[in-house]
Amino acid sequence: MREVVIALVPGILVYALVVHWGVLVQCLLAVLFALAAEAVMLRVRGLPVKLFLFDYSVIITALLYALCISPLTPWWINLCGILFAVMLVKHAYGGLGGNLFNPAMAGFVFVLLSFPADMNVWPAVYSLHSGSPGLLDTLALIFSGRDSIADIDAISAATPLTHMQSQLGGMNMIGEFTTDPRYGLVAGTGLEWVAITFLAAGLWLVFRKIIAWQMPATVIATLFLVSLVFYGFDAGVYASPLFHVFTVSTLLGAFFIVTDPVSSATTATGRLIFAAGVGLMTWVIRSWGAYPDGFAFAVLFMNALVPLLDHFTRPRVLGEAVDN
């Protein structure tokens, strides 16, 4: 699992360079909180702390979680999500290997639902906005919270997904507002580069045979196909397939989250259905749901279906009679 952590690093660095350096603070905080929470839980459960603490699983959880939340998230929210993820979602279900849900996604969704206002403060990308929060503003946001900033709107900006959702809600057509500079080439200025970095890192993992190619490919293909159909049907309301695929959460999720072995299906067919389900539900929630991005929800939804998938996709054992 060390390779997975290594593969995440370039993406995090690009994120810090083109979007906002706050992500580094979030990653650092999340990893520290997570290691502490893990150590406490291991101790409480009477397991060997040394053996499990640095098996990278909890570090991966922390990094994925930190990449989902905004770089400007207050530290206590970061902590809340991590505690929920590590203590409840992971260890209450039996620790490594026992959790039904992906801890990072569950932690993210937990804070997203608990602190909607704080979770919606996103920094403007450096290249777009002169008002991108500076050092003092960022530290104030992270360590004192939203109320310590006089004019929050001056230093924050909606992400492409959020912007799109609000514009569509205002009955505007996609062609009218995607000329906004924030959309960049296909899926957001700056953010596209982050997404491509994750894609490259994911391909490296596939090449190293750390992860299998089938699941990421299925997620991307499903999302692409579904969005293509609806885009062709009405390009004014439904975003383009490229926009969906090159959004950061899609590529990060396809290669790093869906491939989490613990919370995904175990049978070969089950894994494909799981991945396809994530792709489909992501698009459904993005297009019709109340939240701008649906990847985390889609993963949790499919996590819940895993026992069913495993049950119904058990392969036919050699020599087993075919039913009927």
Partner: peptide, 8 residues
């Protein structure tokens, strides 16, 4: 021996 991570 470590816990099974259901990698399949």
């Amino acid at each position: 021996e470590l816990p099974c991570i259901r990698c399949g």
